[in-house]
Design a protein around this nucleic acid. Structure first.
Lengths: 201, 201
DNA sequence: GTCTATATGGGGATAGAC
DNA sequence: GTCTATCCCCATATAGAC
């Protein structure tokens, strides 16, 4: 990889601008001319760094999912083996929300525009999605092994339910105004214990 | 309203096709020529029924949210006053999921593409969104008044959490393959009681 | 109500200079 | 590495015939 610092800088700027614009206007709503202008280059120059518009969005998708995957993996690995199951799920939720919202331009691509992309782009990113789903399934199963998980809860259903709730935060939560740790605490409480107090209802 | 049956038929076909295509390709990814072809007319003819592409997508947004609003309102109104709070929230969840997934082309516009639309279109649909949020807040408060809701649960946070989880089902749930009542039962269980068994952890 | 024809502007991608 | 220039195609919207 003999890329110069200049090329890396431009490439990163292009990706940052593309991620933000895809989030705001959708994939088809952003032109390569728009991205180039935001990155301070001309449209033709993009083809030195990427082969096509599809390759740009595919890279954005990959970055978003890999950032969150790595953070959540490290977070759950850091929970002591002797800790209760509640600590595992709480750490995973906090880590997902923190990383997901810290890089929301990139992660939004996975949530909001994935379903609108050309089939070839979606197919290229499926393995990364499957890995992240498998990570969450392993987290839930780890909790189940430690005891306390309700027997009627299906692992895949819970994973889809919780990730749906967490990923929707990008539509309304503003990290500049709200406290992510407080958000994570509340979401963990709802995920683990639900709306009702078991002793009263 | 002296619209002929012919005009109404075409208008409805245009909206159905537009909703489906917006879902699949995003707002900017669908041309009026695409919509016209799907509806069996020529592009110029769309302007007899709608003033612009923006007016088409605004109509799709409104239809989606009004369908769900009406269904959930009727569902919670049908729960007896003497019934426990659990029955209220379960009825609301079942009704939201049933209607939301039954008209998923229309409701997807509200979830997936709202954030990518021109500001004027978003602004026009904000009142309907606020009404639906208020409906859910009133449902949660109604449960709280009947007792059993955990004191630490914030109404707006729970509403955002639950609607996020439910609305994400359109990304994976296929009504042709899955049982919506079973899905609603599982989601209601997770929303009301969470992942853990309170007696064991 | 729907058509054809057209005005006007923007799209992804490529070639080759520097 | 980045530029300019360009190929070829498609976009929304309008005007006026039928």
């Amino acid at each position: 990889m003999n890329m110069s610092a200049k090329a890396l800088d431009t490439r990163q700027r292009v990706l940052d601008v593309a991620a933000r614009q895809f989030r705001e206007h959708g994939y088809a709503g952003v032109s390569l001319r728009d991205i180039a202008e935001g990155a301070g280059v001309k449209a033709g120059s993009l083809y030195y760094h990427f082969r096509s518009k599809d390759e740009i969005v595919a890279t954005v998708l990959d970055i978003g999912i890999e950032l969150v995957q790595g953070a959540v993996e490290r977070a759950v690995a850091g929970v002591p083996d002797a800790a209760p199951a509640r600590d595992v799920i709480a750490a995973a939720i906090r880590s997902h929300l923190q990383t997901f919202l810290a890089h929301s331009d990139y992660t939004t691509a996975n949530v909001r525009i994935f379903g609108q992309l050309p089939p070839a782009v979606r197919a290229a990113n499926l393995p990364a999605r499957r890995r992240y789903e498998a990570l969450w399934d392993s987290i839930v199963e780890r909790c189940r092994a430690r005891g306390g998980v309700r027997a009627t809860v299906d692992t895949a259903t819970f994973r889809l339910y919780l990730l749906g709730a967490m990923n929707a935060t990008l539509e309304w939560f503003d990290p500049a105004k709200g406290d992510i740790d407080r958000l994570a605490e509340r979401y963990a409480g709802l995920a683990m214990d639900g709306l009702f107090d078991p002793s009263e209802s």
